[in-house]
Design a protein around this nucleic acid. Structure first.
Lengths: 171, 171
DNA sequence: TGGATTTAGTTTCATCTGAAACTAATATCT
DNA sequence: AGATATTAGTTTCAGATGAAACTAAATCCA
């Protein structure tokens, strides 16, 4: 492994040349994968949960009753993923789906008792992982990170072509 | 879209509760996906390249001649991905693979003339995307981001269980 | 030397993904 | 009301993915 000095602000080797190891989109991807993988392992091993399932549970843990559409809006997942995650969670009796009498296309989702128990078990594990990750930073850096994540997400969504909700083209 | 104030450093709603939208691993994942997607679109549409293929080309663009193992070491991709990316690149005549006479398990890879032409075409596009993404930050923030990415990657690798080679434990 | 181990890279297999097509129900328009 | 358009959610299909098994070549070691 060789060190890779010369950060973003510094002069790159040659302007107009590309060094993957310093390319921010690449680094973000590698970091995000490493982190996700570490976390997914907990969910999968101990609870037989995928990340999309966990995201659904996390939202239901906070909001009590939501439709699939609500969850799509809240989690940046597409409807296929949500649909599948919900199906599995219903299958494993962690989520209950009641079809809404007012609008029978919709289903109102809630954690079951078992689901809630698992949710309460996972939350501290997840928070602990996050804490350990952020231990690498000092408190000031953590605040900066927070702000930067927000800014970058905004910029990235702006660059992204028409994908999810976003500001996209209205029709 | 609703605003999501109350950053990392701030008091969370309730200590011990988890708000996905503020959970750093989640935010990293969403951000990385948004960015990757925006970039992948360029590669795919204009050049019929996947991200793994682009990463291979990027390394060959810089290092001229590499084996698949070298690329694995350089890109945080596993050997399956590299193998497949290389196979496709050879198929599309963008990379040439010469089996190494000294060690016939190995193949030395290099960009073909066509590969190099495409590489030179992509580099400025990729850099331009990165620049636009980072426009959201001021120069100071960019430097901080660079440092943080490095720190977080280090920490994440440490947390990650035995996965890839990585910097792992030096032994 | 020759068997056991390691290394380089490929293939298999069982999932995961998402775009697009689809179904069912509601809302809108005339 | 009845046709048309939207919305909620599911299914299909064609890849992408990675762990594990596999092949082939090189290295180790007794």
């Amino acid at each position: 492994m060789k060190l890779n000095p010369s950060p973003l602000g510094e002069a790159p080797e040659k302007p107009g040349s590309l060094i993957l190891e310093r390319f921010v989109p690449y680094r973000l991807s590698v970091l995000s994968n490493t982190v996700s993988r570490a976390i997914a392992r907990i969910y999968a091993q101990r609870f037989d949960l995928t990340i999309p399932e966990w995201r659904v549970m996390a939202q239901l843990g906070r909001h009590r009753r939501l439709t699939a559409s609500d969850i799509i809006g809240l989690t940046a997942m597409d409807k296929v993923r949500v649909s599948r995650a919900v199906a599995r969670l219903v299958g494993s009796r962690r989520v209950e789906a009641r079809s809404d009498t007012a609008d029978r296309r919709r289903q109102v989702l809630m954690l079951t008792t078992a689901g809630r128990r698992i949710y309460r078990e996972i939350v501290p594990l997840a928070l602990e992982r996050e804490t350990r990750l952020l231990e690498a930073l000092d408190p000031k850096e953590r605040k900066v990170l927070d702000r930067m994540l927000a800014k970058l997400q905004g910029q990235a969504s702006a660059l992204a072509p028409a994908a999810d909700g976003g500001a996209g083209v209205p029709d």
